[in-house]
Structures are given as structure tokens and as C-alpha cells.
Design a protein around this nucleic acid. Structure first.
Lengths: 351, 351
DNA sequence: CTGAAAGCGCTAACAC
DNA sequence: GTGTTAGCGCTTTCAG
């Protein structure tokens, strides 16, 4: 394919002209209907060559418009998430959305649901985001502060639900602020921890930074001094291992750890194990998120589930509400995350 | 929104007629440009009401066609996967695809990448799949045999790469058949297992059933009798637990287990633990897939990684090759999955 | 065997 | 303040 950039995109008219046939002939070749139309083999060949040579790229909008059946309404919906985010959260949202869509689909109303990704912090660079010609509605999640700022400034010209953070002017569904940070601190303190610590990644989403702050605040209020803060380069288990290795090597000590994501907790498990620290005997651990595997670790990991299920359950109706065209002002829905206390924080029984 | 089904979808012309204004006026209201156009507040209100009342749904194809900048080529790509499938594979594919797309994007060539889902075994029901007016190219993965049959019969009218199975007439990328099943059997036998077993779910993808068959064949050839087969209702850890509980309760015994997916292996860990069977002392366990957490289990899980990275690395260029319009016949690429031997099969050191 | 022409739904330029 | 008109790229009659 020649990517003849800079110049107008090639249309079937140019192909037709180039070959010396009509656009209709080209079209029939493109859709493999040249047999019915009894286009000569030679013409077909020449058309095919021209398509190659000129680097023809079909315009889907044109095709769709043309072949659109007038009785059908089509809704194009998407979940917008960052690449860097864990997919399971998105998976839940998708399932909930698709279930609703399946229920609402009729012969004359079709829905297309897709996941689209942007690079965290660079949502604004996503092409076409501000155009009203792509989606009827989206659910946006896993944004970073830079993305939130962008969204706050530029109202999207279609139905939008923001998941996990509060952005003025949008329908938002989020955790009760402070809940996770405060509750995780309490869980550790209740387990008898005297030296609690927290581990989190470098770049914080709004939700994560609120968790960190609330944890900090709660610990400080109850123990008069702040928790140790361990910062990992990324959110993968290996990042947590590296960060904890360094922390312990530098003489850091803790008897309780709040990991702001489950994958950090997984790395912490391994790190403590390598340093011969028992969970929960020497260190109690509590994580966040509802990673399906959390309960299958040894010992099972206590988590403050990220309330994803609940958030999604609120977000989907909110989206359809907007699609319905109702004109009320943006709403904000707060969700209380469930708390799962498991072996990793149950010291009484084991210590 | 009235979903006035059955009758033609509402267009701006109807809105215009209903209100008694021109289509352009309606359009300006829709795009919030009525201020520049100085539409009277009363008219705006009436238009808005009509939009609501008639249940207007904008036609994105029309909008896109109209607002298309003629110098821009747009490629619409998608990864098609089943809901029921584990998302990590999809995530890898998406990352690889997006990286390529980012590299190829220019001012005049844009790519849209989305993940779309179908219900496993019901790919054929996905609306618009056979129309040529949606995608320029797709990567299809996690299909069930019913889907494969459907695909084999109905050639998709756009560039397609099939991941993980072999379907005549398509570009395919898959594991070397038999490799995983054979090698996992060897791993268990090498660990000294005398009574190997296999656990898998009810419904099998092509890849999975090949794994099961090859495992069976290899064990039978080497030990003169087939492995015990444990069938779980689903692929979640809890399904594995239930199936293994039943197997052990019914007097079944094994000293080695091949779990065809990692999440089944996770459940197996828990089940053996509850039955006081040590891994790898009493039972060696080997899993499939490259779940990022496999190495963080206790003991670390040996896996025959599903070769996802390698498969994806082959699939993406194959897709762009087709987008380039080259006309050669479908190719098939075989990939050898990497083998990770970890604690769960290393008996020598522990037994 | 092939071409001409209409029109899918929408918006922007221009006209009044 | 609002209407008219042209045309985005494509496919499908219909007319040879």
C-alpha cells in the first residue's frame, strides 16, 4: 500500500477513473459481486491492481450510510479506559453494559459496545474524542488527574459517565471518598499493628490519592505519627518486591501493610516471604480491589473491594438515562465498597 | 425516549417538520451551535422537546461522512473476543496492536482500535459481523468450535487474523498443536508422577481440546493407562475446587495434575491444601497460560505459557499485511509456547 | 458486460 | 433569526 499521505484519500471514483470504468463497477469488485454483474475478468484484475496501487482505503462512514436500513437505530457505546489500568475492572463494566444492551436490543434497535483505550494522562490526545460523530455514549474510567482536568474543561458532546472520580459537570460514580483509606487503616490497627505502612505506585489516580491521604490521616490521628510510605515504580508485583526490598534493606520496619492495589499486595507477599516475615504473624496485609484471586492466596488476602461491581451497576443505568435524552443536571453517586476480612489480617487466631 | 420501534428511525428532517423549522436549525441545536446561528430561545426549546418526544437517535455514519476531512484515511480495527475468555490474552493483543498503530499513525492516517465481545459459541449472532461496513480489519480470538464452524463457512469481508486456532481460509496464528499437552505430560512424568490427572472445563476451545487429547495420548503411551479426567463446570477457581472435592471424595487419587488454565490451577491449589495434600510433595501441578501471578503462588506454579506474546507478535503484522491489500493466500503460523518450570513440579528438591 | 443517477443522514456555506 | 442547497463516499437500481 502506498500511503500517499498529504493528498486526499483515494475514493472509488479515482479508482474508476484510473482504470477507465464506472464507480459502480469498482464497487461491485470491492464487494465481490462482480460475478453477478458479469464484469470481465480483465476489468476485475485491472481494478484490483488500481486499488493496490493507489492505496485505496474504504470509507466506512460512506458504506454504512449507504447500506443503512432506515428502520434501524444504532447506538455506538464504548468504555474508555487507560492502557495502564488492570483489565478486570473494565471487564466488569463491559459485562454489565453488555447485559443491559442485550436486554434492550430489538429488531430495530441495535447497540455496538466496544472498549477503547487511551494512554493514561493523555486522554486529550485521543483522536476524535471531542467530535460528536463517533459515540452515542461512553463510560470513562481509570483516568489520571491530567485527564480529569482535560475533561473538566472540555465537555464531551455525548452521553458520558465517569467512573471512579468526581469531575464537575459529569455524571459520576465513585467510592465514598476516604472510606477505603480510613477503613484499611482501622483494619490494620484492629489487628494490633503498631507500625503500619502503605505501598502505592508513583502516579496516582484521584481514587488512589484519596486512599493514600485518608490512610495517612487516620493513622496519624490514632497513632500520633504517620505511616511509613513505600513508593513503587509501577503497579506490578515485581515493582512491589523491589520497593519493599529497598525499604527493608534501608532498615525500614512495619507490622502492617496497606497495598493500594491487589497486585502490589501480591508482590508484598513474596517480598515478606523472602525476608522470612510471616503474614499475618509478623506483618498484616490488606489490599484493595476485587481481584478474583485474592481469596486464593496463602493466607487469603483481606481486601477492601474496589466496589467495582457496585459502581458499574450504578453507571450503566446512568448512561442509558442520558441516552434517553433526559436533560437533568449531572448527578453523582457514591458507593460504599465491601470489606472482606480474610486470613492476612487475622492475627488473633494465629499469633 | 419513545422507542417507536417498527417505523423508520427519526431523522432531523422529521424533527424539523414536526417543529416547523429547517433541518439546519435542528442540526445547529444538536451541535450546540444555535448561539452562533442566533436561533431564538423558543425555537431551541421546541426543537429539544421534539428530539425527546420523537426519540431521535443521531446517525453516526451520516455525521461522520459529512464531517470527514477528505485528506484523512481512517482504519477501524477491532479485537473480537468472547466474554467468557480470560482478558489477559486480549490485553496483550491490544497492547501489541496499539503499539503498531501508534507507530503508523500520521496526520493523515488514523486508526481506531477497539475490543468487541461476543458470547462464546454465538459469534454468528453478532450483528453486523458479515457486513463490510464496520471494520477494516479484526483479530479474532477465544472462539469455540461452533464459532469456528461459522467462520469457516462465512468468509468475513475484511482483513482477519484468527488467534489460537486453525480455520481454513483464514490467516491463523496458533500454538504448535500437541506441544502443550505433550510437554505438560512429560513435565509431570519427569517429576516422578505415577498417577497423573487432568482438569479442564466443560466446553473446550480448539486449543484446549487439543491440549487435553495430547496429554491423554502422551500419558497413555508412557504409562499404559490414561490419566484421570476431572471436568469442572466452569473455568473459575471455585469450579476447580468443587470438581476436585468431588473427585477426591469419590476416592479418586492422583500425584500429578495438569490444569488446562491457570485459574483452574489456582482452585486446585486451594483444594489440595484443604485436603492436606502438599504441592509438589503429594501432588505436582502444572498449569497453562501466562497469568502474571503464576510465579507468585506458593509454591510458584509451573506453566506452559500460552505463547500469547509470541502469537500476538505474529498476528499484528499479519493483520497489517492484509490491510496493505496484498492478495496472497492465507498463511498459518505456528508458535512454540515457552515452558516455565517452577516450584510446583520440582519434587527432587523437596521430596 | 457496463454506466448513469439517486439518495442514505447530516452539516456548512451561503442566501435572505 | 432562519431556510436552501450542495455534497461527504458509497451502493443499488435501472437502463442500456
Amino acid at each position: 500500500m502506498k500511503t500517499n499521505d498529504n493528498r486526499p484519500a483515494v475514493t472509488i471514483y479515482e479508482i474508476a477513473q484510473h482504470v477507465g470504468v464506472s464507480p459502480a463497477a469498482v464497487s461491485s469488485v470491492l464487494s465481490n459481486r462482480h460475478v453477478e454483474r458479469r464484469i470481465s475478468a480483465a476489468t476485475v484484475k485491472r481494478v484490483r491492481e488500481a486499488i493496490q496501487e493507489l492505496g485505496y482505503v474504504p470509507n466506512m462512514a460512506g458504506r454504512r450510510l449507504r447500506s443503512h436500513r432506515p428502520s434501524t437505530r444504532q447506538f455506538d457505546l464504548a468504555i474508555l479506559t487507560s492502557f495502564e489500568a488492570p483489565l478486570p475492572l473494565v471487564g466488569q463494566a463491559l459485562h454489565a453494559l453488555q447485559a443491559e444492551v442485550d436486554a434492550r436490543s430489538t429488531q430495530h434497535t441495535r447497540y455496538a459496545v466496544a472498549i477503547e483505550m487511551f494512554h493514561a494522562g493523555r486522554l486529550s490526545e485521543k483522536p476524535g474524542l471531542l467530535d460528536a460523530d463517533r459515540y452515542h455514549g461512553v463510560i470513562i474510567t481509570n483516568t489520571l488527574p491530567a485527564d480529569d482536568e482535560f475533561l473538566a474543561k472540555a465537555r464531551l458532546p455525548y452521553a458520558t459517565v465517569v467512573l471512579g472520580r468526581r469531575i464537575p459537570g459529569y455524571f459520576c460514580v465513585l467510592e465514598v471518598p476516604d472510606f477505603v483509606g480510613r477503613r484499611s487503616a482501622e483494619v490494620l490497627l484492629d489487628a494490633g499493628c503498631k507500625k503500619p505502612a502503605i505501598i502505592h505506585g508513583q502516579s496516582l489516580t484521584q481514587a488512589t490519592s484519596e486512599r493514600v491521604a485518608a490512610f495517612h490521616r487516620t493513622i496519624k490521628a490514632r497513632r500520633k505519627q504517620p505511616p511509613a510510605a513505600i513508593v513503587s515504580d509501577g503497579l506490578q508485583p515485581r515493582n512491589a518486591i523491589a520497593a519493599l526490598d529497598k525499604f527493608l534493606a534501608d532498615g525500614g520496619r512495619c507490622d502492617g501493610l496497606f497495598a493500594v492495589t491487589d497486585s502490589l499486595a501480591v508482590g508484598a507477599y513474596r517480598a515478606f516471604q523472602q525476608h522470612n516475615l510471616a503474614i499475618p504473624g509478623d506483618v498484616a496485609v490488606v489490599g484493595v480491589g476485587d481481584h478474583e484471586l485474592a481469596e486464593f492466596f496463602t493466607p487469603p488476602l483481606s481486601t477492601l473491594a474496589g466496589a467495582n461491581d457496585a459502581m458499574v451497576a450504578e453507571a450503566v443505568p446512568l448512561l442509558f438515562h442520558q441516552l434517553g435524552g433526559s436533560d437533568d443536571r449531572p448527578r453523582e453517586i457514591l458507593v460504599v465498597p465491601p470489606v472482606y476480612l480474610r486470613g492476612s489480617t487475622q492475627r488473633d487466631r494465629r499469633a
